[in-house]
Design a protein around this nucleic acid. Structure first.
Lengths: 141, 141
DNA sequence: GAAATTTAGTTGTATAATACAAATATGTAG
DNA sequence: CTACATATTTGTATTATACAACTAAATTTC
């Protein structure tokens, strides 16, 4: 088992390096990773406030506040005042936001497709499943 | 296949978020990811200059130069002048560097172990293999 | 072989993502 | 009503990074 753990920890470090390197050089679509995840989360989970989003991404509220404001500015999100709490807002995704999210998703899938072009379908399937499982488990570690 | 690619691209984005978040909050050992990868590379692949290292990590030479200088300052690396080229140096790892690298590796493995504590040995094995395969393929994408 | 060009590395500067702290405005409890 | 708590925004500092300018040494060109 230690053998596998050794591979996993090293390759995770390498993966982060590879992907962050890639994303600084060749921008994927118009969205950076944070923007992509925020739009995805809202598209899937519905309107949410910065506090909720920050919790989900384990980011500081101030960071998400700026990111959401930027997305609002670009017309991908709009603010809905909470009718029961004058301090609170939720962000909802716009049509343009959905369009951009989908374009970006296609670009990201394309990249994943290129990288895994010599893989079997089963390998891709398994990789996705294990990544998801890892992420799920990594929430509270 | 699109289904798998969709999972992969999303979970990759989430993974980066999780891990970078983790590493800003709970520092693993004394080494950040760059430092860890540089020490690992030199420990495994032998002494190397900043240009070589920068190529391997797809980072700018100036970035690696600073990182290597920091590691030298901490006593984890030392500089060896290239006898055939007065401009060039290679960095070699010190005993202290090896010690620190191993401690860090243990800490990283421990974290990977925690995250995958409910996995089967086979899943860990497969995950490591596919991560490695993905990284290998991602070099030239 | 001197001048021009290239190369290895360092240092200066700018940018972007982030956290933490302070500020604002609204809500809730005593 | 006053004090405290909460949701969000804004100010400031840090860090990792890239790009550009620089230094010194090597190589090429004439």
């Amino acid at each position: 088992m230690d053998q596998s753990l050794e591979v996993i920890e090293l390759e995770l470090a390498v993966l982060i390096r590879r992907i962050t390197s890639y994303s600084t050089h060749k921008k994927i679509g118009k969205l950076d990773r944070s923007a992509y995840l925020i739009l995805h989360q809202i598209a899937v989970g519905g309107a949410a406030g910065v506090k909720t989003l920050a919790g989900e991404f384990q980011l500081d509220i101030s960071t998400v506040s700026r990111q959401a404001a930027a997305l609002e500015h670009k017309g991908y999100l709009y603010k809905i005042p909470d009718p029961t709490d004058g301090r609170a807002y939720t962000f909802q995704i716009t049509e343009l936001g959905i369009k951009e999210l989908n374009e970006d998703k296609q670009a990201r899938m394309k990249r994943a497709k290129e990288v895994t072009k010599n893989w079997t379908d089963e390998e891709r399937e398994t990789f996705g499943t294990l990544l998801k499982k890892f992420n799920q488990a990594a929430i509270d570690v």
